[in-house]
Write a protein that binds this DNA or RNA. Structure first.
Lengths: 335, 335
DNA sequence: TTGTAAGCGTTATCAA
DNA sequence: TTGATAACGCTTACAA
């Protein structure tokens, strides 16, 4: 049915070994031979069989991307960055989602990886997740995105710093009763959430401000959760004048809660998020933006280096910068 | 390095053929033999080599998902539906993005597909796209999502109907000067855009309303484009009292333009979209929602049937229903 | 620079 | 129900 390397070899009057070398661009092939082989392969409409190539060479030419969510903004944006790099490198991208609170019944990823891919990219899976442990224990080339883990290369922002920037921005505007919308009450170390909590606490303390436990609410990093959290904050005796939401999506929900209470973000209550979500500009939300596409790109490039599919030096742990985007949702206290 | 099927066969005292049959759950294997083989395979931590299996069997166990965008809501949501089905079926999902206006320099998909996957899922690539033609001409099992093409199975909504529902909703509210934000001035037939234009025109005509070319603007299905388009509509001598945006994202941009002009959606001007985007509830946008996750799920299931990896009857063309979600952005003309 | 030939680890046919 | 064994289509020493 299909044209094989033998057909090409036969037609070109050379051995299959020469065809293989010529087509893969290996050295030690006469250029005239090479171009003739290429021509004939093209004429015959020959395409290499990946399975055969993989079996013979031991390389799969594939990278797995492991992610708890596919449709959420942060994750799909990271994936698009990864994809552009892998496509350029001629690598296949295998997409596999893993268990998350919304879809708890997924196949564990580790067994699906062995012998199937040359490397793994993991997006924002908590470092204490047992499924992640199993993947790490596979010992294959990998790189984490959005979280860090001792001994595993990763690409992240400085989450402590991002939270510091956000909180400091509110402090600089004169706010003193500052509320916070975190993900959940208990956080694992080395997660974005944990570090953001720390950054917030640091700046509050440095500014001599109390972190009132009544001004802390939890939004589970969803829009609906952010809405509930802000609603909770608004029921306090003394409302905050500003709120730091640890993600833009929670901030969106918070905005909705504000409007439901007849309040306008940036008017009665200032609001800041973290992410630089596509919609944050539209919603006029001040945010500490992270370069999400780059997160994916950089991690993919680092992984290719690890695998030996690209030149360069392997970096253990990359931290990319964030920047504050000031918009209408934050204003000076007096205004 | 790796445990092979021979190691398992040796340890179990059977032939490799028996191991292969036992592990794949084929019939004609003594159940005692099977469980012994399974046990030994587990003890040895044996995993099959996909490359070898694929080479020998001719099946790749992989499906390619071809998409112009990864990070946009519609596309990532479709992909998540596809992924859940494929993961359940034990199929690998190869993600490849193709050229789009934002990223014009992509590898053409067709050559990357041959011998590599058992089937292809294509998300919302215009039917007249030459790259799509090449993929279709490969003659492999495939299914389209969001567009239809003669002779190729597809899963879509009824776009004419969706636009009719949206337009009729505005008409029912008493609006007569109705503007429209389309994608672009020229549209290929059999695209969502084309059909939505038709549905709009039909209802306008049935209602005895003029489609004023001055009340037509183009937003290229982006937020920014929708904003520009609405701005253009607002500069008309006689503004529309209602606007139909052919996608929610364009409607979001339109909302922003309204606010920039001191107008409130649903107050001075009613606004309706199509999609049922995650953010539409948050932004209180009336929309004709399509079941996007299902689009992906159904297409994936249909493809598995085509390939023979799942039981069922292959459907040529599936149309899934939409529903109108009325929110605050549309109100009666008098209000 | 090119050719020979031994794998790579399965599946599937045929026979037992 | 099980076993031998010939593919599957390529890569890669090693030799020439």
């Amino acid at each position: 049915m299909g044209i094989t390397i033998r057909d090409v070899a036969l037609a070109a009057g050379v051995s299959t070994a020469t065809v293989s070398r010529a087509l893969r661009g290996l050295p030690n092939v006469d250029e005239r031979t090479r171009s003739r082989v290429q021509q004939i392969a093209a004429d015959l409409d020959y395409v290499i069989s990946p399975s055969a190539s993989r079996l013979a060479s031991g390389r799969t030419g594939s990278i797995a991307v492991i992610t708890p969510y596919i449709a959420r903004w942060f994750f799909s944006t990271v994936i698009s960055g990864v994809e552009s790099v892998l496509q350029n490198a001629g690598m296949d991208l295998l997409l596999m989602s893993v268990s998350n609170p919304d879809a708890p019944r997924r196949q564990p990823p580790a067994p699906r990886l062995r012998r199937r891919v040359d490397g793994v990219l993991v997006i924002a899976v908590p470092p204490d997740d047992p499924e992640l442990r199993d993947v790490v224990n596979l010992g294959m080339p990998m790189s984490l995105i959005g979280v860090s883990l001792q001994g595993v290369p990763s690409v992240t922002i400085d989450d402590v710093l991002a939270a510091r920037i956000a909180t400091q921005h509110l402090v600089n505007l004169g706010h003193r009763r500052i509320g916070v919308i975190a993900g959940s009450a208990i956080t694992a170390p080395f997660t974005a959430e944990h570090d953001r909590s720390r950054g917030f606490a640091e700046v509050m303390q440095e500014a001599g401000l109390q972190t009132d436990p009544m001004l802390e609410a939890f939004g589970h990093f969803t829009v609906a959760g952010g809405e509930q959290a802000m609603t909770a904050l608004l029921t306090q005796r003394q409302r905050p004048t500003a709120v730091f939401a640890m993600s833009d999506e929670m901030a969106f929900g918070a905005m909705r809660a504000l409007r439901a209470h007849g309040l306008t973000p940036g008017r009665e209550i200032s609001l800041i998020g973290i992410d630089g979500h596509d919609m944050s500009e539209l919603l006029d939300l001040t945010t500490v933006a992270q370069p999400v596409v780059d997160l994916g790109r950089i991690a993919a490039e680092a992984l290719l280096v690890q695998i030996g599919a690209a030149a360069g030096t392997a970096a253990e742990s990359v931290i990319v910068p964030t920047h504050l985007s000031v918009r209408g949702s934050t204003t000076p206290l007096d205004a």
